[in-house]
Design a protein around this nucleic acid. Structure first.
Length: 914
RNA sequence: GCCGAAGUGGCGGAAUUGGUAGACGCGCACGACUCAAAAUCGUGUUCCUUAGGGAGUGUGGGUUCGAUUCCCACCUUCGGUACCA
């Protein structure tokens, strides 16, 4: 740290504090909306304010967006660059359950901590635009959007959502029938579904909150349980969610994940009638062309017809299978069960194409939640059916082979296309053609039709939790559900004594009688509030809209603001949101678009996923059953447990034994060590950066040591934004040195400011202008690491020419300011400006200075570099060829051979083929 | 299993349209300054080499005058997904 103290003239800590204060006091980053300027909306995925604060991974994307925001402002755009907090969520509530502290209090404290940490990084956020999803002013409009969903239906003809009033209701319905009719169409509706219920936590958990059958937090058992939940009809938007991806500038991989998640598949629905019964069973298949090969049928154990069709003799076994399947979690049903199980129901259906009677089985490899919950099994064409048929000795009929001839040894299903066989009059037909023919036939018979299915399910939108948006609905005494009138929003979260739900699965809110029991404002009769709350995704579904007009108390945002600012031009955040957040937000956006509240069909035009910054965990190795720790290279001689050790106790993989002992001193144990060469060497591994893995590095210490400008520059210099990489500070001296060298261009050897007005040389102009060009291009393509590198080259070259000239340095200060805003402001001031560098125009480069008259050509023979020669760019190829062949070195290599061909690519290369 | 991303010096990485592979930085080595060390500055730094050269971007093949870049097959790592009929 000596070297930092010695460079007393570059006092980054003072400089950074000074300018942060200045920016704040002068309100420099207030969003401007000059009507004659183009707009640029640049958005960060806002953080959940966890109690752990920021680690070095968080700012990566924020630094990138800050650079772009500053750059775009200097390029003449009105820039909107806001920040806020996704402040409803599980951790705060779990913390409340454990400590009794109110989530509102801990959340507020955490946000303050986050904002403090963000402020020292010198970001140019307009904090007057801040939103917090857990504030009533904000969630009032989350609730309002929910009511829009509740009061809308999806009109299939117009292919858009419309107000529920537009829905034509059959005239012969009673009042309560009308209600249930509407409920079938509303975009928000109630349904009984299977949820992950955690009795110990007293709440349902999202799928991603359940790991290996136990809760992620606490490790409590989770059971599958049917519960009434509010659902959002996202499936109505399935096609549009796929189609509209087309025009988005998103990573192809993200588009693909979204497509796969929606999982559109086309095929046909076919009705099979049950033998000796009026019932029929509908199946969905993507391969109607294999209909002749259907030799049995499988129902999901939960299929409603199972109990009806099961014969007396089979009932006991079938019931037993159903109850066993019901107890299994989804995980057990899928992952662990490699061999197929099932039971025969005793019943048969008729295959409509060949009148064959085929047995009906039940098996949990068929899911009730996909398609119709029933399949026609074609063991000849589907590997799963094949395995099942083999196990239970069911007929296997080949109906498609590549050549239309039966295969000799049938060892697996053939799922491809080919020529039909064993298919009656259609034998010999191409299977693709037959697919169309058979669907037409099914339609004519009235027993089937072409059909589309989706993997996407409707969105389970309720949680039995406290710390979320209350759902603004009222349950009347006669069993109706009505919306809270818009003017009564927000429905504010009441205070509670206990943050846990009930054993029966009600939300903690259900225990607050004074809140639950109300007078229905519509008819004046007693009624009860809905006590479930919304999932954490709700608030983040639309926050980018609220930034536009966050203080508006009459609308979520005015039309002129949404018209001007939307869509988001650049959205940067982690890839972990590739599917859910981005899909949910697009869905809500489209609903608001359909209902006419916004004019753009997609919210985020360009999306970039920043890579994850991983942590480097350190390990110590404890001999099993002892308190003896053995050094890394000796651990194989013992049976050991690898234990994470706080990386702050480790330097260069060497454990600070005294500090380690101290950290364990509370545990009353005698710790022993087995050392190598008198040292304890730790093991290491690259893992996610997380407090529980003791590998978290925070920006705080680095900023203290090097300053925010260095930190910003270093995170950008680490590598491409989109690439994941483990954190290490090995190279940070390099960018720190660079900043000091840049600083020194403005100062003499004694640290006195010294910039001359001397006319620069052509070479100096060239250095500056090629740098500006490169930096501009690199920012535009978000290649920040190469931009930093260009600055380094520039500074090295200017240092070599001892250039201290204003005409060169001034534009470079502006160009550097998006990356290192504090130092840039300081130098800008020293250059005598009274305005901020932040408000300057980005320098333009002059092609004049970059023009080359000559080019140094690499001369290669058969692709191998042999010499270099410089030629004027306007020299004819013939002359170049003559000179090259006359060159001594080249002569030596071509000696005795005649060149077959000489390839001259202007400004590139000369290649001689011999 | 399926889908996706990526494999380049001791390390992070660069090469934007098929045209000098290894920019820039770290580290390391040597030198200058110093009583010395640190810091700073300078020089060098892909590997092999018999010093002529030769090899080289995960592996093997292909297209091309020329391939990190395009095509085929394979290997490894990371991420997503999980019987979706």
């Amino acid at each position: 740290m000596n070297h930092i103290l010695k460079m007393a003239e570059f006092k980054f800590a003072d400089i950074e504090k000074k300018w942060q204060k200045y920016w704040l006091e002068k309100d420099i980053y207030k969003t401007k909306t000059d009507k004659d300027k183009p707009k640029y909306y640049i958005l960060d995925m806002f953080p959940y304010p966890s109690g752990q604060g920021l680690h070095v991974g968080h700012p990566l994307g924020y630094i990138a967006t800050d650079i772009v925001a500053r750059y775009k402002r200097m390029k003449g755009f009105n820039v909107l660059h806001p920040m806020g907090f996704d402040s409803f969520g599980l951790p705060a509530e779990q913390y409340a359950i454990e400590t009794g502290r109110h989530p509102a209090d801990t959340t507020r404290e955490n946000i303050e901590r986050f904002k403090e940490q963000l402020s020292v990084l010198g970001f140019s956020y307009d904090w007057s635009k801040e939103v917090r999803t857990s504030e009533p002013d904000y969630y009032r409009w989350t609730q309002w959007i929910f009511l829009k969903l509740f009061n809308s239906y999806y009109d299939k003809k117009e292919n858009k959502a419309l107000p529920i009033e537009n829905l034509k209701i059959p005239s012969d319905l009673t009042d309560s029938e009308k209600e249930s009719y509407l409920a079938m169409y509303r975009l928000a509706y109630q349904d009984d579904i299977m949820v992950n219920w955690c009795p110990m936590l007293g709440t349902v958990l999202a799928n991603e909150e359940v790991i290996g059958g136990v809760s992620e937090r606490g490790g409590y058992p989770v059971v599958r349980k049917p519960m009434k939940q509010w659902m959002l009809r996202i499936t109505a938007y399935a096609d549009r969610l796929i189609e509209d991806l087309e025009d988005l500038e998103w990573p192809e991989s993200i588009k693909l994940s979204q497509k796969n998640w929606v999982g559109r598949s086309t095929g046909a629905e076919v009705d099979f009638s049950v033998k000796d019964s009026n019932d029929f069973i509908r199946v969905f298949t993507t391969r109607p062309d294999t209909l002749f090969g259907a030799t049995y049928m499988v129902l999901a154990p939960e299929h409603p017809l199972v109990s009806k069709i099961t014969t007396h003799e089979r009932r006991q076994k079938v019931d037993k299978y159903i109850s066993r399947a019901g107890q299994k979690s989804d995980l057990e049903r899928t992952d662990l069960e490699k061999t197929k199980t099932g039971e025969f129901t005793g019943a048969y259906v008729i295959n409509p194409v060949n009148r064959q009677e085929i047995p009906i089985w039940i098996s949990d490899y068929v899911l009730i939640s996909y398609g119709t919950g029933a399949i026609m099994a074609v063991p000849g064409g589907d590997q799963r059916d094949f395995e099942f048929a083999k196990k239970f000795n069911i007929d296997i009929t080949e109906v498609i082979t590549p050549d239309g001839k039966p295969s000799k040894m049938l060892e697996q299903a053939y799922p491809g296309e080919g020529i039909m066989l064993n298919s009656g009059e259609y034998n010999g037909m191409d299977s693709l053609r037959f697919k169309q023919v058979i669907v037409e036939w099914l339609v004519k018979q009235g027993i089937g039709k072409a059909s589309v299915n989706y993997k996407l399910r409707d969105w389970v939108f309720t949680r039995q939790r406290y710390w979320g948006e209350p759902i603004p609905l009222i349950h009347t005494e006669d069993g109706k559900v009505v919306a809270v009138p818009e003017e009564d929003l927000p429905v504010v979260l009441p205070d509670v004594d206990s943050f846990t739900g009930t054993k029966e699965g009600d939300s903690p809110l259900a225990k607050v009688d004074s809140w639950v029991n109300i007078i229905n404002p519509v008819d004046g009769k007693p009624a009860k509030r809905e006590t479930n709350t919304m999932p954490q995704w709700a608030g983040s579904c639309w926050y980018y809209l609220r930034y536009l007009d966050n203080h508006n108390t009459r609308e979520f945002a005015t039309k002129d603001k949404t018209d001007y600012w939307l869509p988001v031009d650049l959205y940067i955040g982690g890839a972990e949101h590739a599917v859910l957040h981005l899909l949910y937000a697009r869905f809500w956006h489209k609903v608001l678009y359909d209902l006419g509240y916004i004019q753009q069909k997609e919210p985020f035009k360009k999306l970039i996923n920043q890579g994850m910054i991983q942590g480097r965990s350190s390990f110590v190795y404890r001999i099993k059953g002892t308190n003896k720790y053995v050094s890394y290279n000796l651990k194989n001689e013992h049976e050991v447990d690898a234990i994470h050790v706080d990386i702050n106790l480790v330097k260069d993989d060497m454990l600070d034994i005294e500090a380690f002992k101290k950290s364990r001193s509370g545990k009353q144990e005698v710790v022993e060590f087995i050392l190598e060469d008198g040292k304890y060497i730790c093991g290491h591994e690259i893992e996610k950066m997380s407090k529980s893995l003791l590998n978290v590095v925070t920006p705080d210490a680095i900023i203290e040591k090097y300053g925010a400008d260095t930190f910003r520059l270093y995170e950008m210099f680490l590598g491409p934004l989109e690439q994941s990489k483990p954190w290490n500070t090995n190279g940070i001296d390099g960018v720190f040195k660079f900043l000091r060298k840049f600083w020194n261009l403005f100062h003499d050897a004694h640290g006195i400011f010294e910039v001359s007005d001397e006319k620069p040389t052509v070479n100096e102009f060239k250095i500056a202008h090629k740098t500006i060009k490169k930096v501009q291009e690199d920012i535009e393509r978000l290649s920040f690491n190469t931009a930093v590198s260009a600055f380094m080259i520039c500074v090295n070259e200017l240092t070599a020419t001892k250039c201290h000239k204003r005409e060169i340095l001034e534009p470079l200060v502006i160009a550097l300011s998006p990356f290192a805003p504090h130092m840039a402001e300081e130098l800008w001031e020293k250059l005598g400006h009274s305005s901020t560098v932040t408000g300057s125009d980005f320098p333009s480069y002059n092609e004049e200075y970059l023009r080359e008259d000559t080019h140094e050509y690499p001369i290669s023979i058969n692709g191998k570099l042999r010499a270099k020669m410089t030629f004027a760019l306007d020299m004819p190829n013939d002359d170049i060829e003559k000179q090259v062949l006359a060159n001594e070195v080249i002569k030596k290599w071509t000696e005795g051979k005649t060149p077959k061909k000489v390839i001259i690519v202007p400004r590139r290369i000369v290649n001689i083929v011999v």
